[in-house]
Design a protein around this nucleic acid. Structure first.
Lengths: 129, 129
DNA sequence: GCAATACTTGCGTCATGACGCCAACGTTCC
DNA sequence: GGAACGTTGGCGTCATGACGCAAGTATTGC
């Protein structure tokens, strides 16, 4: 558990601190933090192929309009891609991009190490005398 | 973009499908999907050391009780560890475990490949005649 | 014991979002 | 053109949760 990034320049540390804020963007996480949406995403991931709104609604026994709305939210969060063909909209989970996002997030956290204080260099620790 | 897991046994595919549901557990994602909580976590990650509630509240200019509540939520989601020493509670971001979680998530998605249908094997594709 | 510190928790208010119904829109087939 | 289909969007209802205040609890120092 020894921190790997101990001796770094302030510039590097600053860049890492900026990165973690960029990568912790709540829009994606919030989109995924809703059980219904997680279910829909899971369904699409398992499917491995584009699905229509009707199809998913039938598969998951969820109301039509809800599915459309949730899929829209997921698409706006960059989790899904949608393509309209005829009168049908095909939603597909971009698995590669999604896993890359999470890996990026993990990397950002790892690389942060102890990039330097947000709340100051060290605790005064008044309580443990 | 050729799927790597094409020829797998049904048993393996089934395990992968179960894994993605386990790993997409919304509690963690929901906890992180709240902007204020994301800010607090970011602060703690940057700090790289345990911080008290007061400290973080002062650092982020957020109401005391809110910080305490949010940190509690994050701790319950497994994102933070808390240790009470005297009258002070020290919250710390478990960076290693958090990044591991995200990496696991990424792995589960990658490994899923086309693990086999949720909505059936293939689309009838009635629209594109 | 009493005051100060550090945190927790209860309460009311408010904003956000999920949900389900139904109407509206665009597209396809006849 | 009209009907059927697939999706989107508006509306009202409801549940959840964030927010801030203030009272309550635990711990420390006097």
């Amino acid at each position: 558990m020894t921190p790997t990034f101990q001796h770094t320049t302030p510039r590097q540390a600053s860049r890492r601190r900026a990165r973690i804020d960029r990568v912790l963007e709540p829009e994606l996480l919030r989109a995924l933090g809703e059980p219904t949406r997680a279910r829909l995403l899971s369904c699409l991931l398992k499917c491995g192929r584009p699905c229509s709104v009707t199809e998913i609604a039938a598969c998951c026994s969820i109301d039509f309009s809800m599915v459309a709305r949730h899929l829209g939210t997921l698409a706006r969060a960059g989790v899904l891609t949608c393509e309209k063909r005829g009168r049908t909209v095909w939603y597909a989970a971009d698995a590669a991009s999604l896993s890359a996002t999470f890996r990026d997030l993990a990397d950002a956290i790892d690389e942060l190490g102890a990039a330097g204080g947000c709340c100051g260099p060290a605790a005064p620790d008044k309580t443990t005398t």
